[in-house]
């Protein structure tokens, strides 16, 4: 299922990680050690974003923020996007962020 995301324009790599941060599967231009690091980073970042979202909800009492659906770190030329336990990195010039996030959301359900 996640191979479909790699086929989208501008997607350079995609991987799925377990709840402990271990790599489940990954495809794209990264070698396996780098793919494992990306899985670990995405897992850590997911938990950090969850923590920040929990605090935002706690302080504001606003509904609809927690749990977070995903996150995007938008760099100058590349971005890293994550939904659920999936993460991918993309070339900003070639990829459609909306398309990537939409497909990630769908793939994360499986």
């Amino acid at each position: 299922m996640i191979k479909r995301i790699l086929a989208l324009d501008g997607v350079l790599g995609v991987c799925q990680f377990r709840d402990d941060g271990a790599l489940v599967e990954g495809y794209g231009v990264l070698d396996e050690p780098l793919m494992r690091r990306m899985a670990k980073f995405a897992h850590d970042y997911k938990r950090m974003v969850q923590g920040n979202t929990d605090q935002f909800s706690m302080f504001t009492q606003l509904v609809g923020w927690a749990p977070p659906g995903g996150w995007i770190v938008h760099g100058e030329r590349t971005s890293v996007c994550s939904v659920g336990n999936l993460v991918c990195f993309i070339d900003n010039a070639a990829a459609s962020l909306n398309e990537v996030m939409g497909d990630m959301k769908e793939a994360a359900r499986y």
């Binding site: 690091r37 850590d44 970042y45 923590g51």
Partner: peptide, 23 residues
């Protein structure tokens, strides 16, 4: 309860930062 949520969030964040630092 709030203090626990805040402290856990920062602790998770510092674990990630230390990992990145030492990588």
């Amino acid at each position: 309860r709030m203090a626990s949520i805040m402290c856990r969030a920062t602790t998770l964040s510092t674990h990630m930062q230390a990992d990145i630092l030492c990588t």
